[in-house]
């Protein structure tokens, strides 16, 4: 804690950390439950399309993302097919 915050008694703002940690852990646990709630996938797919399009030309449909559970692992698979160059 800095001297200033000691003097003025300000406490650390930790609520944002709580929120971020919860969002991650809950997304993961919902996948674990086998519930069809990997519902961040569509948003992630769109963001990937946006990022990749900055550098190479791709069709939105050619980027596929999926989440699967294999034994103790979760596999996040991203499949990007680049259009044929001619």
């Amino acid at each position: 804690m800095s001297l200033l915050s000691l003097i003025f008694g300000s406490k650390p703002k930790t609520a944002n950390m709580a929120k971020e940690r919860l969002q991650l852990i809950i997304a993961r646990e919902r996948v674990d439950d086998g519930k069809p709630s990997a519902d961040f996938l569509p948003a992630m797919q769109q963001e990937l399309v946006a990022v990749i399009s900055k550098y190479v030309h791709v069709n939105a449909d050619d980027i596929k993302v999926s989440m699967e559970k294999k034994g103790n692992y979760e596999v996040l698979e991203v499949n990007i097919v680049l259009p044929e160059q001619n």
């Binding site: 406490k11 650390p12 703002k13 609520a15 709580a18």
Partner: peptide
């Protein structure tokens, strides 16, 4: 919450 210590 206002002070950023608790989730809203």
């Amino acid at each position: 919450v206002e002070d950023g210590e608790m989730l809203s």
